[in-house]
Write a protein that binds this DNA or RNA. Sequence first.
DNA 1: GACAAATTTTGCACACCGTGCAACAAGAGT
DNA 2: ACTCTTGTTGCACGGTGTGCAAAATTTGTC
Lengths: 221, 221
Amino acid sequence: MLKATNRLGSLGRREQNKIDTRRAIADAAFDLARNVGPGAFTVDQITERAGVSRRTFFNYFPSAQDALTVRMDLFIDRILSTFERLPRDEPLFDTIIRAFAETTGMEGLSQHGELFRMADADPDLLRAQLHSWERAEARIAEALRIRFGSTASQLYLTALVGCVMSCTKTAMRDWAVHTPASAPDSGKQLEARILAVLTMLRDGFADPGLRIAPDPPDPGS
Amino acid sequence: MLKATNRLGSLGRREQNKIDTRRAIADAAFDLARNVGPGAFTVDQITERAGVSRRTFFNYFPSAQDALTVRMDLFIDRILSTFERLPRDEPLFDTIIRAFAETTGMEGLSQHGELFRMADADPDLLRAQLHSWERAEARIAEALRIRFGSTASQLYLTALVGCVMSCTKTAMRDWAVHTPASAPDSGKQLEARILAVLTMLRDGFADPGLRIAPDPPDPGS
DNA sequence: GACAAATTTTGCACACCGTGCAACAAGAGT
DNA sequence: ACTCTTGTTGCACGGTGTGCAAAATTTGTC
């Protein structure tokens, strides 16, 4: 007999409510961080905005900072799904580069940059973000292990993923710093940087002269 | 009038007391983490062991976990001082590899491994450690910038340092996992891993077959 | 040694955090 | 409508991190 219970696009009320609540909390947290500054608000303020109880907040996130890393986790989701879609006979490094470069078209990219900049002012937020990257590393490494586990050693795969993630992080930081407002070519700017650093990585950092933009040789800051 | 006040090897009472207090706190925290488990003790327990007041603890460390990253910061000190000592006309990558490889002879290396393993059980400790690595990255990048700032772009240097740190982290994790007890050749084990991953990095991860231990070789690709 | 200045330690208060628990509410299945 | 399952809420409680001002300690000077 057919299940006709799904009234909400293949999702039950329960699932949908949870998604909504989670989003409401994350949005409230982001708004607060943007307005009063990261680390300058309490959980109670978040729950008030989101319209949930204090206790419910902690059912979703272990800390206020963790509510601000949702977007980064979504970023990883995107990388992984892009990764799954790419041809399996492509060289490993090409696949990785494409998977990472293609993510720069995602929505809310400028918010990403904002969050990066916020981390400078709030150590706890920085830690939460680093933890998020760490989880991402583990997830991607696992995906690679499943796909290439037979042809590459564990140490090789984890080291490679670590470097790729580190390079991407560096690229995003540099982008977040040098692309302050939401420039129209923001995505392109980020993509160029990611390509640049991943190319450096593939070349074993042999050429120190690679530059992303004609930068006047920084006179001692 | 001559200063005859320094009775303690070029250090005043004040400086020495602070060093002692800091060490007492860090030791107490490490002992507790080792005995009752990371994240399973309170700040009050630390202060009781260390013989200081609760308030004093927070004058030295912002959280209990941060008292456990002192050793990692010392590790970075060692890398940096080794780095300073190496010849300045050596190729950049060689200098880096040597600076990192030479640190494996440091005292308390096994405690390092212990701390790595502890991070699996305590998310907050993991975050503190990630933060510690992050600070280390910044310090080393700055040292490199001063030394090579004229011949390499900022993006290149930060990306390179990030990858080197990431590789070292990977090597130390793998070492911490696979060298459980304090093996007699613990330092050599770690050094071999660091050399392996940094070599991979220098080769642009071209050869997936590099292995640290004889594993069923699969000369694929 | 006594005194004053500088610095560190300490106790205290207070707002906030994070979690176990049990009552309650709401969706799912019949 | 009834029951089962799952999510929300209020409450209580121990722990955290910090500002503040009063001791306590070190340092320099006479």
